[in-house]
């Protein structure tokens, strides 16, 4: 996982960097889960598929994370990417592996679009900032 925390007065801001777009999605989810701090309850894994359509790549990443955040609270599970089945600029379909939790140590209220900008640099590396509302 490649992300670092940035200074933000009230919320949690991270910079995620990855060698591929797929990795950026996986690493962003891993960063979110690490911030949430799941207190794990067993290893039983349940696969769940999420399919998201958005206006562009940046919105797609934020909307994907928002969907996983909602699932986490509804199902009391934490998630990692099992498989990315499909991805383009406007749509992503992901199979998630969900594992049960007792609780999370941090309450992420929402994933925001503020300052998020998925970009690829001249060396092919992908990155974005993400601010989580705490």
């Amino acid at each position: 996982m490649s992300y670092k925390r940035l200074e933000h007065t009230a919320d949690v801001e991270v910079l995620v960097e990855a060698d591929s777009l797929e990795s950026l999605f996986c690493d962003s989810l891993d960063a979110m889960v690490e911030i949430m701090g799941p207190e794990k309850k067993g290893d039983k894994s349940t696969n769940r598929t999420v399919s998201i359509g958005s206006i562009d790549l940046t919105a797609l990443l934020i909307d994907f994370l928002s969907e996983v955040l909602a699932l986490s609270e509804i199902n009391n599970e934490y998630y990692e990417v099992e498989k990315i089945q499909f991805m383009n600029e406007n749509r992503v379909e992901v199979v998630l592996a969900g594992r049960p939790i007792e609780t999370f140590s941090e309450d992420i209220k929402a994933v925001t679009y503020h300052e998020a900008d998925v970009v690829q640099d001249k060396d092919g590396k992908w990155s974005t900032k993400i601010i989580f509302d705490i």
Binding site: A59, D63, S66, A70, K109, A110, V111, D133
Partner: peptide, 13 residues
């Protein structure tokens, strides 16, 4: 939290 998430997304579109 979810109402706001849903509608920021809808309004952005």
């Amino acid at each position: 939290h979810q109402i706001a998430t849903d509608y920021v997304r809808l309004h952005m579109k």
